[in-house]
């Protein structure tokens, strides 16, 4: 094709749009000046300041606590829900309700929970965020596990039941091992979603402990410094590495499956 070189222009526009802001962000994190806007010279000083920032450190710890706990809760509940929905009922209503937390805008979930916690006079804290995150994560886990269930071979389960095994025994010995990759994928998704979640946490976290996204948000509100850029650069590095590693792993997994 003659014009193929020009054809790719939209592609480059998109990638430039997506990556220029990120590159700028990272470059400015090495600024030696106080301003996040004008570059004065190279320095690691904002990284050093970041390392000493207790708010950021506590935020990171809190985020990990919330993400881990909500993932465990969501994985257990979501897997059971997926099995229940796929094997034991045909109700479309239940299907829809189970998917609702994933579909509803986060703001709606957030105010619903805020109102609910207020009415039962719950003291807000990390655990109220854990409950909230598990709510939408459960929907994602259930959805991921279900796609796996639909493709799974049911004859083994039937055989197990015919041999007199109860639903729980059948689940533990037959279904669960078959589902393991789906459950793992769902759990990973839940964990990543919780790590980054801002809106719901913002409404339901209360006053004492804050998660990292909330810490970042207040840092930006209370004045923009290259310290935020340094934090951003580190987070970018972590998530890029994780995504690329995940990509590699699935590739290797696929290659093995094809062998």
């Amino acid at each position: 094709m003659r014009s193929s070189r020009w054809l790719h222009v939209p592609l480059w526009v998109t990638y430039a749009f997506l990556y220029v802001p990120i590159i700028v962000l990272v470059v400015m994190s090495f600024n030696s000046g106080r301003s996040a806007y004008s570059y004065e010279g190279f320095s690691f000083k904002w990284y050093a300041e970041l390392a000493e920032d207790e708010l950021v450190r506590d935020g990171l710890i809190n985020t990990l606590i919330v993400a881990t706990s909500s993932t465990v809760l969501a994985t257990v509940l979501g897997t059971m829900l997926a099995v229940g929905l796929a094997r034991y009922t045909r109700s479309k209503t239940l299907d829809a309700i189970a998917l609702m937390p994933a579909v509803l805008p986060d703001l709606v979930l957030a105010i619903g929970l805020l109102v609910f916690y207020g009415v039962i006079q719950l003291t807000l804290g990390l655990y109220s965020v854990v409950l909230a995150h598990a709510l939408f994560s459960m929907a994602f886990v259930a959805a991921v596990v279900r796609t796996r269930l639909v493709n799974a071979d049911t004859s083994l389960e039937e055989a197990s039941r015919d041999l007199g095994a109860g639903p729980v025994a059948t689940f533990m010995r037959i279904t669960l091992p078959q589902l393991a990759p789906g459950i793992l994928a769902g759990a990973l998704l839940a964990f990543t979603l919780s790590l980054d979640e801002f809106v719901i946490a913002f409404f339901t976290i209360g006053n004492s402990d804050q998660t990292l996204p909330i810490v970042i948000y207040s840092m930006i509100r209370f004045g923009v410094t290259p310290k935020i850029n340094a934090l951003a650069a580190i987070l970018l590095l972590v998530s890029f590495t994780a995504v690329i590693a995940g990509q590699r792993m699935t590739k290797i997994g696929e290659a093995r499956a094809q062998d």
Partner: peptide
Amino acid sequence: RGRRLGAFVFLSPGLTYLVVLLLVPLGLV
């Protein structure tokens, strides 16, 4: 009976969670 027991065991925890933390809050709103 096995089906009903299965439905109860697998669906009730998740659905309870959804009723308490999703449907009741939305009803309140």
